[in-house]
Simulated scan of single mutants.
Amino acid sequence: MTPLIASLGMYDHPAQQGTNDRIWSAIVRILRTRGVEGVPDVLDRKRHVHDLWRDPNLLFGQACGYPLIADDSLALQVIALPIYDVPGSTSSDATHASVLVARANDGRRSLADYRDTRAAINDPQSNTGMNLFRATLAPIAETSVFFASVVQTGSHRASVAAVAAGDADIAAIDTVTYATLMRHEPDLTALLKVVARSPASPTLPFVTSAITSIETIAALRFALQQVMADHCLADDRAVLGLAGIVTANVDALAPILRLEQSAIRCGYPDLR
Rank of each mutant, 00 (worst) to 15 (best):
T2K: 05
Q16V: 09
I23D: 11
S25C: 04
I27D: 10
V28D: 08
L31G: 09
G38F: 05
P40I: 00
D44Q: 06
R47Q: 14
R47L: 14
H48D: 15
H50E: 12
L52Y: 02
F60N: 04
G61P: 06
Q62N: 09
A63V: 10
C64N: 11
L68D: 01
L68V: 00
S73N: 14
L74T: 09
L74K: 03
L76I: 01
I79V: 14
D85E: 02
P87W: 01
A94M: 09
T95N: 15
H96N: 15
A97M: 13
L100P: 11
L100H: 03
V101D: 03
D106M: 10
D106K: 15
R109G: 12
R109L: 13
A112D: 04
A119H: 03
A120I: 00
I121Y: 04
I121T: 00
P124K: 01
N127T: 10
T128R: 09
L132Q: 00
R134E: 07
R134N: 14
A138P: 15
A138C: 10
I140A: 02
I140K: 06
A141S: 04
S149C: 07
Q152P: 14
G154M: 08
S155A: 10
V160R: 07
A161Q: 08
G166A: 10
G166E: 12
A172S: 00
A179I: 05
L181T: 07
R183C: 08
D187K: 01
A190L: 07
R197W: 03
R197K: 02
S201F: 02
S201C: 11
T203M: 03
L204R: 08
V207I: 01
I211W: 13
A218Q: 04
L220W: 01
R221V: 01
M228Y: 07
M228R: 04
H231K: 13
C232Y: 07
A234Q: 11
L240A: 14
G241N: 06
A243L: 01
T247G: 09
A252I: 07
P255E: 02
I256H: 03
R258Q: 12
Q261K: 04
Q261V: 08
Q261E: 07
R265W: 04
C266I: 04
C266W: 02
G267F: 00
D270R: 14
